[in-house]
């Protein structure tokens, strides 16, 4: 697997590992992508989903499988994943833009409404994005979840933002 050499998954590897929801499901609204393809003993995502949309079962090294019809894209699993490998995508946000929600455990957190540099899995800036939501409540146990709007065609690539310059307090 190329992941072992370069340290990130290509879209092809994700599609081949059945991690990608269908285009049909994307067009219905918010849905989760679990970018976790290796057999590691781990199942908090399965336990987190109250819609039972994520299946691991036994043994817990099974790679998580998403039932795209049961998933409503609520995103509770994002902060539960110890690997920070879960994202929520909304391709129906507007005609030109889509939303991506991702875990972001750094300070400072971006401000809602600000423009940020969106990066791909390799950390390269591929687009600018607008911060739509920043969640950091107690139930997330200090894994803030950031949602940004980016051009729709960038949704397959964008998985985070460039780290912001440190400021005092936040």
């Amino acid at each position: 697997m190329v992941l072992r050499e370069i340290g990130y998954l290509t879209k092809k590897e994700l599609v081949d590992s059945n991690c990608y929801p269908s285009e049909e499901r994307f067009n219905k609204g918010l849905v989760v992508i679990i970018e976790c393809t290796e057999e590691i003993p781990c199942n908090p995502c399965e336990a987190a989903c109250k819609f039972k949309a994520i299946k691991i079962g036994k043994p817990i090294t099974n790679v998580p499988i998403l039932d795209e019809d049961l998933c409503i894209g609520c995103g509770v699993c994002i902060a539960k994943c110890p690997g920070l490998a879960i994202f929520v995508i909304d391709k129906t946000y507007s005609d030109n833009e889509g939303l991506i929600s991702f875990p972001y455990e750094y300070l400072p957190l971006p401000l809602i409404g600000s423009i940020v540099k969106a990066v791909n899995r390799e950390g390269k800036v591929v687009s600018s994005g607008k911060v739509i939501k920043v969640l950091n409540n107690k139930s997330l146990d200090r894994t803030p979840v950031v949602t940004i709007a980016v051009p729709k065609e960038k949704l397959d690539e964008v998985r985070g933002i460039e780290k912001l310059e440190s400021k005092d307090s936040k």
Binding site: E5, G7, G83, L84, E162
Partner: peptide
């Protein structure tokens, strides 16, 4: 090859 979990590598690759 990278020694640790893919997801750990992915986190830092995403950070550039």
């Amino acid at each position: 090859q990278i020694g640790g979990y893919g997801v750990h590598a992915a986190k830092i690759r995403r950070a550039g």
